[in-house]
């Protein structure tokens, strides 16, 4: 229709599409989606960039004509795989939204147990639930076009990425580690204070959210590009941190799953 054509936005004369988007959640706390809704100051601007067709956290209507799907959470149940495949059929772009979707997140901590039946019994007791033995990132099941890291995702970063998407800019994730932003913020190095920190190997972009508050980094955004994980493990040992402490950090969000697995097998730790 003519009317809608007139509403076509432009940026410096270049047409800007308003993609139809939907938000979905698999096994997760929905905290990442909450980040979007929380962002009151810029929420209206955000909504003018995209046409939200489904978003359980924010609206009751639900349409399935979306082009971009933001998927929060990891896959822990068979029905989630089915839902995921359906979304993949519809969406031109699938965004793994947050650390659970990208790496399995905190949910994947259960993957370390060798006896899932025992775990289910311990956790759910008399209330058994249908859940797989492992929690998996969504790219284990469908092709993922874009990842947004973080537990939770950082709203400013989501806005920047979405703005880039509609303008046709390349979405570039920081390749540098958290350390760079931590130093930029004039923080004390947590190693000096005796706190373990994965800042030197974890992908930046969070503006050193945790170290700013004197919490060591837990690696929620996964490894920085060319991260020297082996060297940091060595340094942590030199600082007197136990293998368990190192393992706890590496294992927490699933971004360092490979290194965590290697370390676990080396120290012979059980779940």
């Amino acid at each position: 229709m003519n009317a809608s054509k007139q509403e076509q936005r432009t940026y410096l004369g270049i047409p800007v599409p308003r993609p139809k988007v939907a938000f979905f959640e698999l096994s997760s706390c929905e905290g990442c989606q909450l980040q979007i809704v929380n962002n009151e100051a810029t929420l209206l601007d955000f909504l003018s960039l995209v046409d939200v067709r489904a978003f359980r956290e924010a609206m009751t209507e639900k349409f399935s004509d979306y082009q971009i799907a933001f998927i929060e959470g990891s896959v822990t149940r068979a029905d989630e795989i089915e839902r995921l495949r359906k979304v993949r059929e519809q969406a031109a772009v699938i965004v793994a939204f947050g650390s659970c979707a990208c790496f399995g997140g905190v949910n994947q901590l259960k993957n370390r147990f060798s006896d899932p039946a025992w775990v289910k019994q311990e956790v759910y007791r008399g209330h058994p639930v249908e859940t797989a033995d492992t929690a998996r990132p969504i790219e284990d099941f469908v092709k993922v076009d874009l990842k947004i890291f973080g537990c939770p995702v950082k709203k400013e970063e989501v806005e920047k990425i979405v703005t880039s998407l509609v303008l046709g800019k390349t979405v570039v994730h920081p390749k540098y580690p958290v350390c760079l932003e931590c130093k930029a913020n004039n923080n004390l190095c947590l190693f000096d204070l005796g706190e373990p920190c994965l800042g030197p190997i974890t992908r930046g972009g969070c503006n050193a959210w945790c170290p700013n508050n004197r919490f060591g980094c837990w690696g929620c955004r996964g490894p920085a590009v060319d991260a020297n994980v082996a060297q940091l493990q060595k340094i942590m040992r030199q600082h007197g941190f136990s293998e368990e402490t190192i393992l706890d950090r590496l294992e927490c969000f699933g971004g360092f799953a490979e290194q965590a697995k290697e370390l676990r097998s080396k120290i012979g730790g059980k779940g």
Binding site: V16, D45, V162
Partner: peptide
């Protein structure tokens, strides 16, 4: 041995190398 973290440059009183990035606010 290097962690590639850039802390040396951050602490250095003479390192001045930089990058430039352009951004647009979500309201365009």
């Amino acid at each position: 041995k290097c962690l590639g973290c850039g802390s040396c440059a951050s602490a250095c009183p003479t390192c001045y190398c930089y990058g430039v990035e352009e951004t647009v606010d979500p309201g365009l």
